[in-house]
Design a protein around this nucleic acid. Structure first.
Lengths: 343, 343
DNA sequence: TCGCTCTTCGCAATCGATTTCAAAACAGCA
DNA sequence: TGCTGTTTTGAAATCGATTGCGAAGAGCGA
């Protein structure tokens, strides 16, 4: 008796039949007598038979597994995306292999390599902050390998992206601050390697211009690290040194906004009376803060779900990447809370 | 030319050699001339050859993949655990297949089934709140299949568990509240199906007793849902109806503690002057709240890492589950912050 | 009893890589 | 030239499941 699982051969031996008959009986193929089918299924049940998906994968060159490459699992936003991915993949019979790049290009590349070795049917990617060269993706795309990018869209022509409307979300947030009477609005920007950072900054700029406010370059402060400490420090510095003291901060992420809250509070400024603050992402904790933080909600779970649907449709040839819409943009929603509401 | 990847046979055809020679040449087996090795490697490189892990898995009955079953990815704590798992698994050459049960027993079972079909080498499990019967796990354990449970330890003799010291963490938190002069401490407990809930309640009870405070059953309030609204409501009710008004709340999780903060604030109580509050898990946002929330930190990433190390050691037969320590308990750390510090 | 048809099942190849066993090829030496 | 020994390579089986094709057996009419 083997230690492992019962195979189709074990059943065949037990019943003095051939492996082919067992296979057909289990799948209710025509040409197998009902009596045989009954016996086969009975023995399969008894032996606790479970088909070997690996053998199937090898034969069909299909693994029913998709890969997900993400910068960091710990980010709340990404965890919601994963949740959406897992949900859809699972319901359509696919497994999800996960790998985090930790924002390192080298790990991103090696992750893809091992996943390809494991014959994944497709991959969902949100690339790392380090990634500036996309050859490892274009090579695959050229071969027709199914890839869908989410959240962070690379500068690759023909690539399929699912993202939120960073520009519009940013525009809305800035316009909201303006409508609340804030005039000297600082933008805490993200690393310029990410398209989302650029789009968010653009939304900020255009909202100002459309409302007749001149964009002051000194009011755009880049936070490369994205940590709480960094933004707190930079905001404190801005409050102390900028000739025209800012009266609002729009951060490209929630952590930065929290840093701004802290810095303003330390500076003795009242929120939202004297300073307005808006974040981006609408992390869970926004409504738990004091004051509750206004933020731009990104539909993370939906993004994961949509990206997965598209990927699986491509894999199953229901969609041709060449003929389809290249970029799916999901709407954001501004959550107006205490940190930015004066009226 | 095939669409897919180049195989060993393609290289063989190209060089007029046999598949066996290619295989040996690529692995630097003895008995292959240096000249042949050189040519084979050159062609392999040129054809962008990548070994098919599926074929290897089939042959070796080893997939170098482990499964992870988790209630919900979105939970901050679990996302840190996943991060630790992924880290260790990756560095030891294993893939991670992820599945969330959404706290549903049925999905937990079906996830395990598909993972087994996919020939995973072992599995890490944190079981769902619905799971009261562990047959689907014991069956596997009896077959000698490698399983390591984390965070939530099932009542299965011989099972290997990695968890935090819920009892001690809870004891410390309660003792801390007592040391700060709080006397009427309410415990917001979790669902009694989870061992962690029971342990945390036990730590609370014994800390009280050891400090000569009688345990008041009315002071133990169970929060089955674990939502913010629920705890807010229950705390408000407790403040209004309990004959002896509580002066502190120790919640078995952070969400509950936030609900308590809100309820107390709405009731006009000053934190920490009039009411002390401590949570459990030390989620990211604890230090961003106002007042900053004291909480018991659980080493999530470490837990994931340790559990994975043990699992891989068992898989690789470096460890025998029968002879080893059954339960690994990781230390918690009380993060004392403003919400509970009167002095 | 011989055909023929239809039902029911088995053989063998396939997927990609590894590995055992054995066979070539070639060198050295008498 | 013939024999032994070494080096280098191949054929075939294996892992588990599927499937086209062929074959055996039953049943039936002539």
């Amino acid at each position: 008796m083997k230690l492992g699982q019962a195979t189709i051969k074990d059943i065949a031996r037990e019943l003095n039949l051939s492996a082919s008959t067992i296979s057909r009986a289990l799948k209710d193929y025509p040409g197998i007598s009902d009596e045989t089918k009954r016996k086969v299924k009975e023995v399969a049940e008894k032996m606790n038979y479970r088909p070997n998906a690996i053998a199937l994968s090898l034969r069909q060159s299909r693994s029913f597994t998709i890969g997900v490459i993400i910068p960091e699992v710990i980010h709340f936003f990404f965890s919601t995306v994963i949740s959406g991915i897992e949900e859809v993949a699972n319901s359509r019979g696919y497994n999800v292999i996960l790998s985090q790049s930790n924002e390192k290009l080298a790990r991103e590349i090696s992750s893809i390599e091992t996943m390809l070795s494991n014959q994944i049917d497709g991959v969902l990617v949100s690339y790392s902050k380090e990634t500036k060269n996309f050859d490892h993706f274009t090579k695959l795309l050229d071969q027709g390998f199914p890839i869908v990018f989410f959240d962070r869209a690379p500068a690759i022509p023909g690539a399929i992206n699912v993202m939120v409307d960073d520009y519009q979300g940013s525009f809305d947030a800035t316009a909201h601050l303006i409508s609340q009477g804030y005039k000297k609005i600082v933008h805490l920007a993200g690393p310029q390697t990410l398209k989302i950072s650029i789009d968010r900054e653009k939304g900020y700029r255009e909202a100002l211009e459309k409302n007749g406010i001149r964009v002051n370059p000194a009011y755009i402060i880049t936070c490369p690290l994205g940590t709480l400490e960094e933004s707190k420090e930079l905001v404190t510095e801005a409050l102390n040194t900028l000739p025209d003291r800012p009266d609002a901060f729009f951060s490209c992420n929630d952590i930065g906004a929290v840093g701004a809250i802290m810095a303003c509070r330390d500076a003795g400024l009242k929120i939202p009376l004297e300073v307005g603050i808006v974040g981006f992402s609408d992390w869970q904790f926004c409504s738990m803060l004091d004051p509750q933080l206004s933020s731009v909600a990104q539909p993370g779970s939906l993004m994961g779900a949509r990206a997965t649907e598209i990927l699986l449709d491509i894999i199953e040839k229901k969609l041709d990447p060449k003929t389809m819409e290249q970029t799916l943009i999901l709407e954001t929603k501004l959550m107006e809370r205490d940190s930015s509401k004066r009226f």
